[in-house]
Amino acid sequence: MTKIILAFETSTSVCSAAIWGEGEVMASEQESIGYGHASSLFSFVKNVSQKARVPLEYINHVAVTRGPGSFTGVRVGLAAARGFSLAGNLPILGMTTFDLLAYTAKKQMMEDHAKIVVMDTKRGDLYTAFYDIGQDLPSHTQITKPEDLQAHVEPYKKSYTPIHIIGDGAAKLQTDYKWPMNVEFLPIFPNASDLAIAAAHFHETPSYPFSSDPLYLRPPKVYE
């Protein structure tokens, strides 16, 4: 059976959808919408299905990001993925936004280095994941204050080893702080086309831990 993937990404203010088949992205759509992913997502899915001339019943995999990101956005994506999965008995290729961005950066830079993926939490800090060179999965993840991130590149400064800071939190870090020469910035955000490509790649790598569970990295806020 030919692999056909419906991918969508709703974990930031950008909403996107894509269809992947025959080794490439056949159609994609993306827009910075701010909020309202629960509405726009379904227009985007319909549009990419029509553009790619792939009716939704031909889809046999659903790719989605499972966070971290906007709590609501992450849930919208995963709820949609679970709905499609239930309806068509489709496997869910759920990746973290970290792994997606780390893989996308590796492909764009055409070389592999140590990486720090930083996602803006919109609360003044960063969801952060650390990748050693050659690794597709992070050595650890945490929430970091922007001013504390410099300490993490110190070891690389001494050894002159290149390190990449990637993600929608990267641009602000680059302008707000002074960095050693060996730090390179790639301010990319997660989107469905890159997700489809990454999911297709990792689907061929049996060790990748796809999941349909959310990764929030922050406990729920309780108001007394």
Partner: peptide
């Protein structure tokens, strides 16, 4: 509570979308 409403509504929409 909108966070919960979204989960149910979006799951339902996906099922409806898949089967038209």
């Amino acid at each position: 509570l909108i966070g919960g409403v979204l989960v149910g509504a979006v799951t339902a929409k996906a099922i409806a979308a898949y089967y038209s």
